[in-house]
Amino acid sequence: MSVTVKIGVLNVQGAVSEHAIHVSKVGAEPVLVKHADDLTGLHGLILPGGESTTIGKLIRKYGLFEPIIEASQQGLPIFGTCAGMILLAKRIEGSEEPHLALMDVLVNRNSFGRQRDSFEADIFVEGMNQDPFPAVFIRAPHVVKAGQGVQILATLDDRIVAVRENHLLATAFHPELTDDLRMHQYFKQMAESYQAK
């Protein structure tokens, strides 16, 4: 009998419950992650949106900073949405120090404006069927530059808004705020590949 895929959702700030609901809907088991022990037995980890500087401080406060980096080094799939993309980035435009510094990208924070400038746009994501994805952008970042090993999955007005590097996945938008489950299904497949190793 196959073991259920367990996908953690970092539970310190942001759209935690919305991600957990989507994880359930794609047939995986959501696990809320607030302490290092919660990472045990996971097949994937989602870093939700929120405020990246605050989340960066909270993962240190809860003792998750090093364990997340170590889990990534062991190949655990990690999916960062919006602020999660900033957390994953090795470089952030301006003087800000990177957070987890796992993904070979340079990001621009708040590149689409303030909260009131939030919007939805149909984008095409590589590896999904031809139907556009209804992407929700809220004070969203974008990837300014992607390293050689980084696959660009989606762009909007020449800005890179979805990327993958091996076991790392990041979107500038919030897939958990739509009814479209394809991004979570895509990540579940990454988690299943990890589980099968």
Rank of each mutant, 00 (worst) to 15 (best):
Q130H: 13
L100G: 12
I160D: 07
V105K: 04
L45K: 11
F124W: 04
Y186G: 01
M103N: 06
Y194W: 11
R109Q: 05
L32A: 08
G14V: 09
H43Q: 12
D179T: 11
V12R: 12
V12Y: 13
I7M: 04
G8M: 13
Y186C: 11
Q73G: 14
G50I: 11
G14T: 09
G149P: 04
A36R: 11
P98Y: 08
L58V: 12
K25I: 00
G63C: 13
V107N: 10
H99G: 01
L76M: 13
I46M: 12
H35P: 00
T178R: 03
Q74C: 06
R60K: 15
P67L: 07
E51M: 06
D122R: 10
F173V: 00
V161I: 15
P134D: 04
F137A: 08
A170F: 08
H174T: 06
A172C: 01
H184E: 10
H167Q: 15
H174L: 05
A15S: 12
A191M: 04
L10A: 03
N166L: 03
Q151E: 15
Y62S: 08
S111A: 15
L76Q: 03
A196R: 14
Q148G: 13
V31D: 02
V161A: 02
Y62G: 09
R114D: 00
T81G: 01
K61M: 12
I92L: 10
G44M: 04
V23N: 08
D158N: 15
M183P: 05
V5L: 04
